[in-house]
Amino acid sequence: MSIVTELILNADSESRYPAPKEIQVYQNFVKTGEQRIRIAKILAENEQRIVQNGSARFWERVPNTPSNSGNERKTASCQRDQGWYIRLIAYSVLAGSEKPLEEIGTIGIKEMYNNLEIPLRNIVECMRCLKEEALSLMSEEDALEVSAYFDYVMRSLS
């Protein structure tokens, strides 16, 4: 759900017009639209690079992990999931909200990885590596904006 959708739904649930403070939130959202689109485009166009280089960086730091076991199926599954998180982060950037990550990507995540017997600390480190790779492709201002979404995923795993 985007900030705009939330703003409208909140006002509508109280049968009122958006308050001046809410209008200001909307104005700020519109002002940052070009930046959010630019960031999402960088993530989309570079997803494979981010995943490949992020995985390599992760394997240097954590060489003994299922994704680096030589089992091509496990490696492909892990990298597919990494690409999925890059996409969810792009959705969240576009929405200006962590809601897409929360609603689609983080609810039940701990249980899933625990059931697969993948240490959560490994997933957090992998996300850190993906974040580093993604940020290396962006300006300082854009990196600051997208960083919070990677951090949100890492916090949800801690």
Rank of each mutant, 00 (worst) to 15 (best):
residue 29 F to C: 03
residue 39 I to E: 06
residue 156 S to H: 09
residue 95 A to I: 03
residue 137 L to C: 10
residue 81 D to F: 10
residue 152 Y to C: 05
residue 56 A to W: 04
residue 127 M to V: 05
residue 97 S to M: 06
residue 65 T to W: 01
residue 28 N to I: 02
residue 2 S to C: 10
residue 12 D to H: 12
residue 125 E to L: 11
residue 125 E to Y: 08
residue 40 A to N: 11
residue 105 G to C: 05
residue 80 R to A: 12
residue 75 T to V: 10
residue 135 L to M: 09
residue 6 E to S: 06
residue 95 A to S: 12
residue 32 T to F: 13
residue 108 G to D: 02
residue 15 S to E: 15
residue 88 L to C: 11
residue 155 R to H: 14
residue 71 N to C: 02
residue 145 E to A: 03
residue 130 L to V: 06
residue 4 V to D: 02
residue 152 Y to P: 05
residue 10 N to R: 14
residue 93 V to Q: 08
residue 31 K to S: 00
residue 70 G to Q: 06
residue 35 Q to V: 00
residue 39 I to L: 04
residue 155 R to A: 12
residue 158 S to Y: 10
residue 144 L to R: 08
residue 9 L to E: 13
residue 9 L to W: 06
residue 83 G to Y: 04
residue 9 L to A: 12
residue 61 R to M: 12
residue 152 Y to M: 05
residue 84 W to G: 06
residue 137 L to Y: 03
residue 133 E to K: 08
residue 41 K to H: 08
residue 14 E to G: 05
residue 59 W to C: 09
residue 72 E to V: 09
residue 123 I to K: 06
residue 5 T to E: 15
residue 76 A to E: 11
residue 71 N to L: 01
residue 60 E to H: 06
residue 74 K to C: 10
residue 135 L to R: 05
residue 49 R to Q: 14
residue 90 A to W: 10
residue 57 R to T: 01
residue 54 G to L: 00
residue 60 E to S: 06
residue 100 P to G: 02
residue 114 N to D: 15
residue 4 V to S: 05
residue 55 S to Y: 11
residue 19 A to P: 01
residue 89 I to D: 07
residue 30 V to G: 08
residue 109 I to V: 13
residue 107 I to D: 13
residue 61 R to W: 02
residue 145 E to I: 00
residue 142 D to P: 07
residue 59 W to A: 10
residue 93 V to W: 07
residue 87 R to Q: 04
residue 143 A to S: 10
residue 101 L to N: 03
residue 50 I to H: 12
residue 151 D to L: 03
residue 37 I to F: 08
residue 105 G to K: 01
residue 21 K to Q: 14
residue 19 A to R: 09
residue 127 M to W: 05
residue 55 S to I: 01
residue 126 C to E: 15
residue 33 G to E: 11
residue 81 D to K: 03
residue 90 A to M: 12
residue 20 P to T: 08
residue 34 E to Q: 04
residue 4 V to P: 01
residue 74 K to F: 14
residue 74 K to D: 15
residue 10 N to D: 15
residue 20 P to D: 09
residue 5 T to M: 14
residue 61 R to Q: 13
residue 33 G to A: 06
residue 42 I to E: 05
residue 83 G to N: 06
residue 41 K to L: 02
